[in-house]
Amino acid sequence: MEITLYHYLTVGAILFSLGLYAMISRKNAIMILMGIELILNACNLNFIAFSKYGGLGVDGQLISIFVILLAVAEAAIALAIVLNIYNNFNTANIDEVDSMKD
């Protein structure tokens, strides 16, 4: 049995769904960030799988490189913000960080 595009896409879809699940169900900011990392990896897997099986050259790989790079920048800022929140609220749970209401 040969490994096809669909195998990779399935792995990607599972990762995406798990990431989505983490974002919806988790309360801790860092846990949510981990969910987002899973989604970004699902995207990368898709891009690279498509680029290989579609014979599309390195476009897919390049976009993945930039995605990784942006993930780094995002994580750095996220960490700074979460630490700041922790200083102000003494928690990183977003349920407890809710001073504004309708």
Partner: peptide, 25 residues
């Protein structure tokens, strides 16, 4: 998937960078 450079980047940047940041956090 023959993305050798990307695999390397993944290990170095993602695992070495982002994860370390998260664990710090």
């Amino acid at each position: 998937l023959r993305a050798d450079f990307l695999a390397l980047t993944q290990v170095m940047v993602y695992i070495g960078g982002i994860l370390v940041l998260l664990i710090f956090g």
